[in-house]
């Protein structure tokens, strides 16, 4: 999402050398990278050991050879419901992601490129409500609502509240303003295209990178979420985070089992992260400047 303007300033002349990295800078960055990666490395070290090795003093510092066996054990531990957890998380995260991207793209188009009474006040309302931690604030009535609908324990109870995503609408509004020139919309209008057709043929192709950023963010958010699923789901039909927590509380001394489960739970995200790293970094930076 980085506009070309930024790259140019990066490559600008540097006569005084103030943009060169000093040794101190390099050391600091190296340290930051090591600290960032270490807990993940440690996860693999413990997940690939045996329980007796995991509690040695000093602890082992290199991965062992039991990763496959430990993961096998997690998957075979029936009351951990780990496979259910993985597939539930996948269903929840992808359903919410697709819906949020769709809702946000539609609303973003309207806010950015259409004229209607109350447009500004509605947009400000969205911005203000983004500041309210709805999840913590409204948790009791939301739970009571799901119970009275007999939806508690079901995935739709997790999915529905997350379809509300003010950040998504805001991001897509900003992105549409930047990526879809007014003249393009007007030209399509002159050609007799309806609003929906303009959205489909003109807006959607132009805002695809913004949709990707929003989609990745939403997917990660949902995959990692914990509080609401913990309230509304049961241990025998968990999301992946609940499944880890289940391992954690039921087998609290079986470190390798817990760590293997934890490692398994972040593999999908690492894959997404490596594949879309550039978009994720760009999206966060873009969002920060725009917000």
């Amino acid at each position: 999402m980085a506009p070309p303007r930024r790259r140019n300033t990066q490559a600008a002349a540097n006569p005084s050398g103030i943009w060169n990295a000093t040794v101190l800078t390099r050391v600091m960055l190296a340290l930051a990278l090591i600290l960032s990666a270490f807990p993940l490395y440690w996860m693999i070290v413990i997940a690939s050991r045996t329980n007796s090795e995991a509690v040695q003093v000093p602890p082992p510092f290199l991965p062992g050879g039991n990763l496959g066996a430990n993961i096998q054990e997690v998957l075979n531990t029936e009351n951990a419901h780990f496979i259910t957890g993985l597939s539930n998380s996948f269903i929840v995260a992808s359903t919410v992601t697709i819906s949020v991207v769709l809702i946000s793209t539609l609303a973003g188009f309207a806010f950015a490129r259409l004229n209607f009474r109350g447009r500004r006040i509605l947009l400000v309302t969205i911005l203000l409500t983004m500041m309210v931690p709805l999840q913590q604030m409204g948790i009791v009535p939301l739970y009571r609502l799901m119970v009275s609908l007999h939806w508690n324990g079901e995935l739709k109870a997790v999915i529905l509240p997350y379809l509300l995503n003010g950040f998504g609408v805001f991001l897509m509004t900003q992105y549409t303003e930047q990526a879809v020139p007014n003249e393009l919309v007007e030209a399509a209008r002159v050609d007799g295209a309806s609003t929906l057709r303009i959205w489909w043929n003109v807006v959607l192709p132009a805002v695809r990178p913004g949709m990707a950023v929003l989609g990745i963010n939403t997917f990660m958010l949902l995959w990692n979420d914990y509080l609401w699923p913990m309230i509304v789901l049961n241990q025998d039909n968990p999301t992946v985070q609940l499944a880890i927590q289940g391992l954690n509380s039921r087998y609290s001394t079986n470190y390798v089992l817990i760590f293997a489960g934890t490692a398994l739970s972040i593999i999908p995200l690492i894959v997404v992260f490596v594949a879309f790293g550039r978009q994720i970094v760009g999206g966060i930076m873009e969002g920060a400047v725009k917000a």
């Binding site: 807990p39 880890i244 954690n248 972040i266 992260f273 970094v281």
Partner: peptide, 25 residues
């Protein structure tokens, strides 16, 4: 890009996973 991705790596890790590892550490 590599360095920026590196410092963002913790964000990708779920809170529960972070807490499990740190609790053991």
């Amino acid at each position: 890009l590599f360095i920026r991705m590196g410092v963002l790596l913790p964000l990708v890790t779920s809170v529960v996973a972070v807490a499990v590892v740190f609790t053991q550490l």
